[in-house]
Computed example of a mutant assay.
Amino acid sequence: MASEGVEPGTVRPGGRTARVREAVLRAAGDALAEHGFDRLDLADVARRAEVGKTTVYRRWSSPTGLIADLLDDMAEQSSPRARTGSLADDLRANARLVLKTLTDPRQGALFRSVIAAATCDPRTAQALHRFYAVRVGEWSGCVTEAVERGELPAGTDADEVVRAVSAPLYYRLLASGDPLDEAAADRAAEAAVLAAKAGAYVN
Rank of each mutant, 00 (worst) to 15 (best):
A27I: 04
H129I: 08
D104A: 01
R16E: 15
S86F: 11
E7M: 15
T144D: 13
G52R: 08
L180M: 08
E22S: 12
V11C: 08
E190S: 14
R96N: 11
A46H: 04
A198M: 05
A95K: 00
G137E: 09
G85W: 06
A88T: 14
R92S: 15
A33L: 06
D157N: 12
E34H: 04
V24W: 07
L25V: 04
D159R: 10
G177Q: 02
R149S: 05
D30C: 03
D90I: 00
A33V: 08
A188T: 03
V134D: 13
Y170L: 12
G29F: 05
A31K: 00
T156P: 01
T17A: 15
A188S: 12
A146C: 07
I115E: 09
M74Q: 14
G5T: 02
D178M: 03
P8D: 12
A27E: 13
R149T: 04
A196W: 10
R112W: 07
A184F: 04
R39N: 09
G141D: 08
H129D: 14
L180N: 04
R47Q: 12
L152F: 05
D72A: 13
G199R: 06
G14M: 10
G36D: 09
R106S: 05
V56N: 01
A191L: 15
T144C: 08
D44N: 00
D90A: 02
A183E: 15
A133P: 00
T64N: 08
R83A: 14
L110R: 03
Q77R: 15
R12M: 13
G5Y: 10
D73F: 15
S3D: 13
S79H: 12
L25R: 01
T64I: 04
R58A: 13
G199I: 06
R187K: 09
R16P: 01
M1V: 15
G15M: 03
D104F: 01
N94T: 11
Y132W: 12
F111S: 03
Y171H: 11
